[in-house]
Amino acid sequence: MDWLFFGEISLAGLAMGGLYGLIGLGFVIIYKATRVINFAIGEIMMFAAYLFLAFAGGMEMSPWVALPLAVLGGSVLGGVIEKVMIRPMLGESSISVVMVTIGLASILVGLVELGWGADPQLLPEFLPRKPVFLGELYLAPKIAYGFLIGATLLLVYLLYFRFSRGGVALRATASDQAAAYSMGINVRRVFNLAWVFGSLAASLAGVLVAATGGLSPQFGAVGLSVLVVVIVGGLDSILGALIAGLFIGWLETVAGAYLGGQYRMPATFAVLAVILVLRPYGLFGTHEIERV
């Protein structure tokens, strides 16, 4: 066995997994606060990545201006979705809300195809190109810097939730909605912010992932891997999403490298099945989850 190769593959996988963790975090924020399973998270990522393409490619902005703008666009999209599509569904069964997010996903795919066509596209290069070495291990610079940027946002989120007053409001709402209302917390506003924050995380990750592997209207399928991540981690566990993200990213990459690309997804789903048999609520999940 070539340990150097294994090390490099593992490193790349973990870096990729960090971005999965970030997307998973976006998903978990929305789920924890609002109990909505957002099947459109992958398409929100895709939408932000296309925005980046439009700003940095078509409109020739500096990528470092285009990146925040695209992320902002994705966040606003999340906020608008909550307001016009999800809020009116309040009180409906969770299965109908899930159907709405699935429908939303196809609408976004359709819109993107209308605007940019169905062909795969490459994002303009914007991350430093200098090779990155950790000890002897080489890591592709796009992946390394993508991971760094993603990890920074992740850290900011974790600190915000843990220590800020807004973080308390969010966790209080997640813990007991009615009680949160009775404290004077504007729960509807928290719902909206959860969608904005969740979409922001997904949008940033979307641009970074697309920067390494290219972009097409099918890009949202990454969301499927993320769904596996959050199910493995436990839908309502932020820590779970991070750890599961790293693990699934690593597993996919290693399975792809040693068994061939066609085994990436099967390997992941096999692990998913095993974990769900052993721990139905995921590795770190706490609450009972309604099966949908």
Binding site: V168, R171, G184, I185
Partner: peptide, 28 residues
């Protein structure tokens, strides 16, 4: 007008202090 609900309904996974912080939203 403050309603202390039946069954206390403290935020169980928040600390005592954070529970009190949550209530400061009433002062908005």
């Amino acid at each position: 007008l403050f309603h202390v609900m039946e069954g206390r309904r403290v935020f169980e996974d928040l600390t005592v202090e954070e529970n009190l912080i949550a209530a400061t939203y009433a002062l908005s």
